[in-house]
Write a protein that binds this DNA or RNA. Structure first.
Lengths: 123, 123, 123, 123
DNA sequence: GTGGTCTAGACCACG
DNA sequence: GTGGTCTAGACCACT
């Protein structure tokens, strides 16, 4: 369900956040589905519960999951992350960094768009 | 020439690297052009020389700039960053993260490509 | 009669307490009225009896309801919660937290009082 | 600067968040002012750095403070917490709980408003 | 020196 | 059993 890359410089809790979103996007997880408890996922991934808890809290803050006290954690009924202008600007800036790298490697506009289309389809 | 965002989570030295590359890409800096010394740029940006040095080292490693002893630092004569497969994979992974965010906000393929095209043209 | 919000961070038993008080305040429940047994309310709300029992215990402690052995549970004949200074201080502290949030969002005194008046009238 | 109530059921990190906001609201802390480092405040309050860090991260997320890597943490230049409708509803619900308690104690509308005015002025 | 992340435990309220 | 909070350490990147 979640594959961690321990060598990556990306924090573990961010990897969990991203892959949980990916699983929802791909339909592997549907609204109201239960997700593993903090402790269980921690055991599975061989990390400490605190790290999983941090990921879950951020996912809840973003409206992707919902926790019910004493019951467990579930995919949110309605996931609609509103198009926050500030957030789009932030993503745009990050995209800019990656696209600059591609351009420096000689990618032209068409090649870049092609790559983005492929990546989009994978999600 | 370089605009730093101290509040950004992106390290200062990475901001310098990225903007130096951007300046080359836009033609603001051409091969053989002199760039400020470590000390001068550090003074201009009001940061410690160590941070600038770190950026220059990485830029030299990537073949973007060249240091000529006793003369100073210059934009490299021939900047050709080879299309390293490992690097493309790394960029692809980062792009994937950003595009996932867009998709969760409701961006469809066409909107995403449109955004990427705009970003590409800005560089 | 009681509407639970399982996603809320407010404990279920506290939600029961609050809404029972609300029903009394609004006149939906009058002194000597019978209220559902622990088991029945638990069934209705699809929660465990223990949670309902905890709510009833606290309501009885506060003098809002009374249990008559063999007869059932009823709204208290005389509900008069005395103006305990310690309790007022406690409420004042909680109010302060919420009003601080409003003030940070730009609410001036008049707007804040207006909001409070509206809330008061709803109860 | 910060006074913790260790007996309170309110989490320590929330107490820090609230009091930091209070200090800003009262003008005890102004934009660009440095606030104690995570470690220093932890030492002062005799708690672990992790708890302070959690408070600071939430304050940053709310736009009250800004961290500059390797430099420290500062009150944000422009604190303007936007009037999020969802947030106002949430505060309204909490206010409702407190006002219900007051009403049960016999507070009439005028007394309630008076109390709120006093609390507002204290902030 | 700074904050960010993570570990390996613990206790608590809730259901 | 669930998540929430806290402790007491550690290592890391950045400045």
């Amino acid at each position: 369900m979640i594959q961690l890359d321990y060598k990556s410089s990306k924090p573990i809790y961010e990897q969990i956040i991203e892959q949980m979103k990916f699983n929802v996007m791909k339909g592997y997880l549907s609204p109201m589905d239960a997700i593993p408890s903090v402790r269980k996922l921690a055991l599975d991934l061989k990390i400490t519960p605190g790290t999983v808890a941090k990921a879950y809290q951020e996912l809840e803050r973003q409206g992707v999951i919902e926790t019910i006290r004493g019951k467990g954690t579930f995919i949110a009924e309605e996931i609609d992350i509103k198009q926050d202008d500030a957030k789009i600007q932030s993503i745009r800036k990050k995209l800019s960094t990656e696209i600059l790298e591609l351009k420096m490697m000689g990618f032209d506009k068409k090649q870049t768009v092609e790559l983005v289309k492929n990546v989009y389809d994978e999600i």
